[in-house]
């Protein structure tokens, strides 16, 4: 994984739960440019545990002077976002990966419709800049529960193509209205909770949209669960704690596994299973339903196991 050591240049609260961080090269060098929808993985050395979380870049993709992310504090989460909120100060140095894009715009589209729910607005902030620069038709719909929680409001430019839906104010997002009557060649991008993505998929299917025009990115962080043990080819066993992912446990044990998104989407961490006495809890969006049922592969970044014994091809 190509990593960059960056200096925290700014920390700015946007709402009670969301904070913006800006990273710059310590010597002022230009950072690699990216495309809208890209993310970086931030390494967080937190009291002996090395956490790595992926965050969408919200800054201008063509601006190499810095990278910006917006982090929502998840107090029920595994601690990564809490670390960012409580430990990271301007002037600190953090290791981040080079940008990777698993949620890029399809530039063959004639028009782009972006639908962001809550913190799911983040990838669209960079895409907006890209679309504006390319002068492509688009509309953006941002849904949040309340104005106080809608951190994106501070980051969205004032453009007529941007529609804000605050459900507390009775202005709920009407997906049927958004997806009806869109011109041929429109692509739709959804980022937010799984429920929002499912609702967009259902509405689009009802209106006869082809699947190839629908794109989504779920914010998937490794779910906690009951502790379990895996066995390696050598016979060595590794314990996975309740708030640790299998990938993190393997890394802590210095077992080499490829990874990129750490959110069950990219496929890089796919690992073979040579024996499974129990049930793999698949949480990824990578393996097909048949592959999941076969229990011969696991995505260690998000998936867990319950049962007697799981032997990995590692």
């Amino acid at each position: 994984m190509s990593a960059l050591e960056l200096r925290v240049a700014a920390v700015e609260p946007l709402s009670p739960l969301v904070t913006r961080f800006r990273f710059e090269h310590p010597a002022g060098a230009a950072l690699p440019l990216f495309s809208g929808g890209a993310h970086i993985v931030v390494e967080m050395p937190d009291a002996g545990v090395l956490r790595r979380n992926a965050y969408s870049l919200i800054s201008d993709p063509m601006d190499g002077s810095g990278y910006e992310i917006a982090v929502r504090r998840e107090d029920a989460g595994r601690g990564g976002s809490r670390f960012m909120h409580t430990q990271v100060k301007p002037g600190d140095t953090l290791r981040v990966t080079a940008p990777i894009n698993l949620f890029s715009l399809d530039l063959r589209a004639k028009k782009h419709v972006l639908i962001g729910g809550g913190i799911g607005i983040t990838p669209f902030l960079a895409q907006l800049r890209q679309l504006t620069r390319l002068q492509m038709p688009f509309e953006l719909h941002y849904a949040a529960r309340s104005r106080a929680e809608a951190a994106g409001l501070a980051l969205l430019p004032d453009l007529p193509q941007i529609h804000v839906h605050i459900s507390e104010e009775g202005n709920r997002m009407d997906l049927g209205a958004i997806l009806s009557g869109q011109p041929l060649g429109t692509h739709v991008y959804t980022c937010g909770p799984e429920g929002l993505i499912a609702a967009v998929d259902d509405t689009a299917a009802r209106l006869g949209w082809p699947k190839g025009a629908l794109h989504s990115e779920a914010f998937l962080s490794p779910p906690p669960g009951t502790p379990f043990t895996v066995t390696l080819k050598s016979g060595r066993t590794i314990e996975v704690g309740p708030h640790q992912s299998l990938l993190e446990a393997l890394e802590a044990a210095e077992v080499e596994v490829n990874w990129s998104c750490r959110g069950g989407a990219c496929g890089r961490c796919e690992t073979g299973v040579s024996a499974c006495h129990g049930r793999i809890e698949h949480h990824d969006h990578w393996l097909s339903d048949e592959e999941k049922a076969a229990q011969t592969k696991i995505m260690p970044c998000v998936s867990r196991f319950t049962g007697e014994m799981l032997t990995l091809d590692l």
């Binding site: 063959r108 060649g185 006869g208 082809p210 699947k211 190839g212």
Partner: peptide
């Protein structure tokens, strides 16, 4: 060319 996706 008009933008219709192949799966339609």
């Amino acid at each position: 060319a008009a933008g219709l996706p192949a799966d339609a």
